[in-house]
Nucleic acid binder design. Structure first.
Lengths: 173, 173
DNA sequence: TATTGTTATACTCTATAACTATA
DNA sequence: TATAGTTATAGAGTATAACAATA
């Protein structure tokens, strides 16, 4: 159990880490947005799978996954094959072209990270990887285990609950 | 210097960490999007500052910062005071209402993280914070030091350069 | 002329809801 | 009836470019 100020600091870091992600994404070719690269990376790492599993791995809604999958499929980077176990699903598999693109992207990622993290030891990177892995596990496990049993901003009954309810049209932008 | 596979893993984690950030954001009230919370948090931590400094801290473009600042100002969470040193700038300062909102948000963040990370020790969280801090520093330092001296996907002259050039209309969505 | 900030526009990512097809 | 996936629509975040005001 950590102190409150540590949690607040972690929260700020989670907000700020997007900058690192964006910086890495700038090296991607225009026809391959970050989400497409993520799809290819996961299919290469875990092998062929359904869209629903990809959706879980990326922790995004199926509808979003569907669009990402359509994009990489249109470019010929993945193939969609009939699933013998379920006619509603298709098995997504990376193609040789997709693998080749991913190889090139990985090379770029490696060069960029080797540049930015030139003074990080092998152990430093391993430690960060382990902690990020654990972070996602901690969140993922809680979410699947207790979807609505989470501490929220709903303590004050006078205010509208949270931003996960479907009436976001309340906020005037 | 780390191995290539470690960099690739880190890259995947950077892609995936957005899920954690989104999960945390679900607890925010509808009128306070994550970016607004980030603005308030930074102004509370570092004190009053110009938009340009905020832009640096958030590692986003001034134009984006300007919009976020306008949003929190419209809600009365920050004040914009004339900068005696430069008539073009204004000094951004969190208001009592903004501070109160931030206090409530921090409480929610703390509760949520205490829930998700219930089995993390104080030291675990501190270690993650330190590594994330260092990660941002490593990226930030390189960016300000050598803006265009970065390894890119431009090795192959046959393909369009990267996605940071302004002609993204190339990709047909 | 250079810099601070604003606004218009476009693009990416995400979620909700309605829908189709299959189980 | 329930589930896998698709599509339409809307919102949040970001970047580029053109602009205004001040240095």
């Amino acid at each position: 159990m950590a102190e409150r100020s540590q949690y607040e600091e972690l929260s700020r870091h989670l907000s700020g880490i997007g900058a690192v992600k964006r910086e890495m994404s700038r090296g991607l070719p225009p026809e391959c947005p970050p989400a497409s690269a993520a799809v290819l990376s996961l299919l290469a790492k875990y092998g062929e799978m359904r869209a629903s599993r990809l959706s879980e791995l990326m922790a995004i809604d199926m509808s979003v996954t569907s669009r990402h999958v359509a994009h990489v499929a249109e470019h010929g980077w993945i193939g969609r094959h009939p699933d013998p176990q379920d006619g509603r699903s298709r098995l997504l598999r990376i193609t040789p072209q997709g693998q080749q693109l991913l190889n090139e992207l990985s090379e770029g990622v490696t060069e960029a990270l080797a540049h930015y993290l030139h003074d990080w030891s092998d152990d430093d990177v391993a430690q960060l990887n382990a902690l990020l892995e654990r972070l996602r596990t901690s969140f993922g496990d809680c979410r699947t285990r207790a979807p609505q049993d989470l501490p929220r901003q709903t303590a004050d009954p006078a205010r509208p609950p949270t931003r996960e309810a479907g009436q976001q049209t309340t906020a005037q932008n």
